[in-house]
Amino acid sequence: MNTPQIVIQKAHITITTPFDVAALKPLTMLSVADQVDAFLNPDPNRFEHNFETGVITDPLTGLMWAEETEKLEWDSAVKACADCRLGGFTDWRMPTRLELLTILDLDRCKPCLPPVFETAGEYLWTATETPWSKKEGRTGSARSFFFVGLNYGLVSSDLASYRFRARPVRRAAPASQ
C-alpha cells in the first residue's frame, strides 16, 4: 500500500494593491505552521488599549472591544451592546461565541483574560443562539444562547431570561491589518 504524500509545488501570487514587494518572504511549510500556531496560540499581550477612549483593539482579529455591561437578560444585553457609543463609534454589537473566544488567555484563570481586559463578571453573553433553541423554534425568554465563563474559559448555554454581562464588540479592520 502506498502512503499518501503532499507535494507542494511553486505557487504564483499576484499582488494588485500597492505593497512593498521586498517585504515578502518565501512561503514555506514552516512559515505556514508558524502562522497557524500564532493564530491558535495568539500572544495575549497583542491588544492595544486606547486609554483616552477605553477601547481595546485586537490587531490579530481586527476587532475592537468595549467595557462590560452590567448583568442583564439576553435581549437587554443585545440592546446595551447596540447602544454603546464608546470611542464615538455607533456600530457596537454583542460578539459571537467564536469572537469572544479570541480574547481568552487559557494560560490564566479567574479570569482567563489578558490583564488589559478588566472584568467584573464571571460570565459573558454571546450573540450565538444554541442549535436546539433554533431547531425547536423557541421564542422570547425560552430561547437559549451560549455564554463564556471567564473563570476557566468554559462555554455553556442558558435561557435568555438569565442575567449575565456582555462585552460590546465592533469590526475595526480586516483581521491582521
Rank of each mutant, 00 (worst) to 15 (best):
R46A: 13
G87T: 11
D83A: 07
L98S: 14
G87S: 07
T96L: 10
E48L: 11
F89G: 00
S76T: 12
T102W: 04
V78F: 05
W92I: 07
E68M: 08
L63F: 14
W92P: 09
D43A: 10
T90V: 00
A82E: 05
E99M: 09
M94T: 08
T102Q: 10
D105T: 03
D75P: 14
N41W: 05
H49P: 03
N45T: 09
E67A: 14
I103W: 00
C84N: 12
G62I: 04
V78E: 11
P44N: 15
G87R: 03
F47I: 01
N45W: 02
M94G: 07
G54N: 03
A66K: 01
M94C: 11
L100K: 08
E70Q: 06
C84D: 13
T61L: 02
M64I: 12
K71Y: 04
N41D: 07
F47A: 10
A80P: 07
F51V: 12
R46N: 13
L101P: 01
E52F: 10
E99F: 08
L86R: 06
S76W: 14
L60D: 05
T57K: 10
A77Q: 15
L106I: 03
G87Y: 02
G54K: 09
P44Y: 13
I56C: 04
G88W: 00
C81F: 10
T90K: 06
F51P: 11
W74P: 09
W74A: 13
L72R: 05
N41P: 15
P44A: 14
E73G: 03
H49V: 08
I103N: 05
W92Q: 12
G88H: 03
E68T: 15
H49M: 14
D83C: 04
L100R: 09
K79A: 08
W92Y: 05
D105R: 04
A80Y: 01
L72T: 00
R46W: 08
E99I: 09
